[in-house]
């Protein structure tokens, strides 16, 4: 067995031990950091999660007490909580939250502004939206893309993978055998936002796919992709 084979085997076993849960705290912490940094290793872990997952049938469901959800809401949505009090509009936290929501192309549903829990079935489900998970086997670049047909916004959430030095990521829509259409260079940041023309919106509704390529800074000089595809994915409606 070569050193490389031995290392590969060890990685696979460490992944298995991590998933099974038998490692001591320090080793678990190390492995957990490695999952964040090393995509190939993360894949081994995920394969073991999938393999052992059927055993999870053995966990009997137990409804948690109502107090848990109330405490959770307080922990997560202090801003929503504050909505019932005066002074919200001066609250920095609220505006920060609102700015993030706006970046994601979200409509802040009635709940936040009105009473903090105002969900009504079906209320917000009529909008046509598509989601795509953009990935590629040869790279660790991952984006979650959400297209909102009503506003023709593409919200991109950066999940993992850095752009190579001196390159930009460019987003493309590809419909069938047509040449890819550039949607522009993806701004850097965790959540970014690109607006589309009406024609492109129709292409997406007809089932175009998204792809991301690495291009020279400022985007492809020719208007057609020149760099390798680092991530791609189909759109599905949600």
């Amino acid at each position: 067995m070569t050193v490389e084979e031995q290392n590969g085997r060890d990685d696979d076993l460490v992944a298995a031990e991590y998933v099974l849960g038998v490692l001591p705290a320090e080793e678990r912490a190390q492995v957990s950091r490695r999952i964040d940094d090393d995509r190939a290793f993360a894949r081994l872990v995920e394969e073991w999660e999938a393999r052992l997952a059927p055993m999870a049938e053995g966990f009997a469901p137990v409804p948690p007490p109502e107090t848990v959800k109330a405490a959770l809401d307080e922990r997560l949505f202090e801003t929503a909580h504050a909505a019932r009090k005066p002074g919200l509009w001066e609250s920095l936290a609220f505006w920060r939250g609102a700015a993030v929501a706006a970046l994601l192309g979200l409509v802040i549903v009635g709940g936040l502004a009105l009473n903090g829990s105002g969900w009504r079935p079906g209320e917000q489900d009529s909008r046509l939206r598509f989601v795509a998970s953009l990935t590629h086997d040869d790279s660790d670049v991952r984006y979650l893309a959400v297209y909102d047909d009503a506003t023709r916004d593409v919200a991109l959430s950066h999940v993992s993978g850095e752009r190579p030095q001196g390159r930009d990521f460019e987003l493309w829509a590809i419909e069938g055998d047509e040449p890819p259409i550039s949607l522009g260079v993806i701004p850097s940041g965790a959540s970014v936002h690109i607006s589309l023309s009406g024609a492109l919106g129709e292409a997406l509704r007809r089932g175009a796919v998204f792809a991301i390529t690495a291009e020279p800074l400022g985007g492809s000089p020719s208007g057609a992709p020149t760099g390798p595809v680092v991530a791609a994915g189909d759109l599905r409606d949600i």
Binding site: F59, A60, V62, P64, K69, L72, S117, E123, I238
Partner: peptide, 29 residues
């Protein structure tokens, strides 16, 4: 889960409603 990723609280509430018993079972065990 996708809608939760978009920070839609209504979706998160539903996700909690449908999955918390299973995950609480994991924690208890």
């Amino acid at each position: 889960i996708f809608r939760t990723a978009l920070k839609e609280r209504a979706a998160f509430d539903l996700l909690y409603r449908y999955t918390s018993a299973k995950l609480f079972g994991v924690c208890l065990r």
